[in-house]
Amino acid sequence: MAVAIGPARSSAPLLRRAFSIHRADPVRGLLEVVFAQRGLGTQQLASMRAGDELDVVAPLGTSFPLASHPGPAVLVDGGYGIAPLIPLARRLLDAGAPDVAFVCGAASAVRLFGVEEARCLSGRVTVTTDDGSAGMRGQVTGPLPALMEATAATDLYACGPMGMLWAVSELATARGVRVWTAVEESMACGIGACMSRVLPVVGSDGISRLVRACVEGPCFDGATVRWNDVGSLPSDIEGAAAMGWH
């Protein structure tokens, strides 16, 4: 699930920022998200202090599916994409998953988050960085095939950049591993009204449709997302002609 956050008393920036929920404690009234300072919105959030008010809409969207008797799983993240995977790992283990492994990737060591938390939950934590400043040099796709084989994984869960989700979905699907992806698309309204963040997804009936990342997602079966067509309007999408495809 996700949460959309914006300043309580300001209209700049106009749109809320969407984040995966890292930790929620309804008893204490605690909701925890993880983010990096990049644009105006996250800079404003980083400047908030205890007692400041935020405008929060939550929970939004879908969560990762969890079988009643889960099998071995591999959790793959890109940078801060690990935020929702830590609580997911706890849920998997509590539900009886025999093995949970992590592949934690980032551009550099300073972009890694939650690695020690992951190690507290699993004896199989692989770290990769693009520049080699921590763990293995390279991307998460490097060690992933061997890790799926070593764990006999039945499911792969991933959260991170779209390119990473595309790559790991192809690797998992080719090996018969179910793959679940949490997309990191920017969301405008967060409730599906604006129809601005859509993905081409193949339905159970075999028909491709544009679905909303904030409502039908952010968690999707990675094997059904047409990653190569994200950001475009393919001619075979249901309703493409009415939307002006030619």
Rank of each mutant, 00 (worst) to 15 (best):
F64V: 00
T173H: 00
G61L: 12
R90A: 11
D229I: 07
A67I: 03
S63F: 09
A24K: 08
H69D: 09
T42F: 04
P234N: 14
L66P: 08
A95N: 03
V27L: 13
P200R: 08
V125E: 08
T42V: 06
W166K: 08
S108I: 07
R90E: 15
D99S: 12
G244S: 14
E184I: 02
G192E: 10
G71D: 01
L210Q: 12
R137A: 12
Q37K: 06
C214D: 13
L54D: 03
V3C: 14
A107R: 13
V211I: 11
Y157H: 02
Q37S: 05
G114F: 05
Y80I: 12
P59C: 11
V177E: 02
M164S: 11
C189R: 07
M195V: 09
P70T: 04
G160E: 04
G160A: 07
W245D: 11
S196F: 12
A223S: 15
I82R: 07
C214Q: 14
D77K: 01
W245M: 05
M187H: 07
S20Q: 04
Y80Q: 03
H22A: 15
G39V: 04
P70W: 11
E149H: 05
L14T: 12
L121K: 01
E117T: 05
S235L: 07
G176E: 00
G81D: 14
C159W: 07
G41K: 06
G29P: 03
S122H: 04
